[in-house]
């Protein structure tokens, strides 16, 4: 494997290795109605980008025009924000006011509807605990999305870095990379992750398989047996795709207790920043050091 070899393999060697395992890209490209040459050129230059021979910005400059003409504005991605430049976008976070949460599970269902998760998978659940004895009782309703921890236990353990933290605060899962080992599920202290067993609702619901949610901005087309994300782990992603189109997460939009708040923790004047400053604020299992981005108000 050359793990400890002093000589790094050349780009060509990488290329050869990969070309041996992976399907022939040129053939695939031929079958697509899009420009084969463009594809080949892009791939070539992509390798150069990886090898540090051209800058990613230049790569985008060269190709963005042809991409837009080829795909329309479906493909309007600028150069990825580079690490050296300080990230200035929002850092998302959520505040849930437990005094207002009525334990209705609207968040749970809205999340199902938005993310069209399979049976047995709820990105958000609402935990109910009854306290006290008749007639002096109370019920605690605890909605639990993914905490999008700043020090996420799931990311920590993921062997492939399929789980990783985005700069906007969201913990993402690259389902194309995930091997489905479920280590992250075991590691998450909040039980926020689920495995996609590959089942669905099609038997009871016409058209369920037709639409999948563009989680993490990925267009995965129809849901099909054996196709990613089946066999991988999934979780609440703060409705990344909604955020990108200017919508708050589905559960926040619809929370009928008006208990869920959302916004940019980077902005000290945002609603969430102000709420999180309340003495009522706390985070779940704070002692574990996971630093959740979901703040509760007790």
């Amino acid at each position: 494997m050359g793990l400890f070899s002093k000589v790094a393999p050349s780009i060509k060697e990488f290329g050869d290795m990969v070309n041996n395992i992976l399907p022939d890209g040129e053939k695939e490209l031929e079958q697509s109605p899009y420009d084969t040459k463009l594809g080949l050129d892009m791939a070539r230059d992509a390798r150069k980008v990886i090898a540090g021979k051209i800058k990613i910005e230049d790569f985008h400059k060269v190709y963005s025009a042809s991409l837009i003409s080829e795909f329309g504005d479906h493909f309007v991605s600028g150069p990825e924000v580079s690490k050296d430049k300080k990230y200035t976008g929002p850092k998302w976070g959520m505040v849930i006011d437990l005094k207002k949460c009525i334990g209705c599970d609207t968040c749970t269902v809205s999340c199902k509807a938005e993310n069209r998760t399979p049976p047995g998978m709820s990105y958000n659940v609402v935990l109910e605990t009854e306290l006290g004895s008749y007639p002096n009782i109370s019920v605690m309703n605890l909605p639990r999305p993914c905490m999008q921890c700043d020090k996420p236990a799931c990311v920590q353990v993921c062997p492939t870095r399929a789980s990783f933290k985005m700069e906007n605060g969201i913990v993402a899962i690259d389902n194309d990379r995930c091997i489905g080992c479920r280590y992250c599920m075991v590691a998450c202290p909040y039980g926020a992750r689920s495995y996609d067993f590959g089942n669905g609702y099609e038997e009871e619901m016409t058209g369920y398989d037709e639409i999948t949610s563009p989680e993490y901005g990925m267009d995965r087309g129809k849901r099909k047996k054996g196709k990613v994300p089946e066999g991988t782990v999934r979780k609440c992603n703060f409705c990344f795709h909604r955020l990108e189109r200017g919508e708050e997460p589905a559960c926040v939009e619809t929370c009928i207790g008006d208990a869920r708040f959302f916004g940019d923790f980077n902005d000290p004047n945002s609603v969430v920043s102000k709420l999180a400053a309340s003495p009522r604020a706390f985070r779940l299992k704070e002692e574990l050091g996971t630093q959740p981005r979901v703040v509760y108000l007790r």
Binding site: H74, F75, V76, S77, E80, K83, R161, A162, F164, K165, M166, A172, I173, D174, N175, D176, R177, P214, Y216, G217, M218, D219, F240, H241, R242, E244, R245
Partner: peptide, 11 residues
């Protein structure tokens, strides 16, 4: 993550 992967722009 230094490089964002598995994240697209289809919303």
């Amino acid at each position: 993550e230094d490089e964002v992967h598995g994240v697209g722009t289809f919303y």
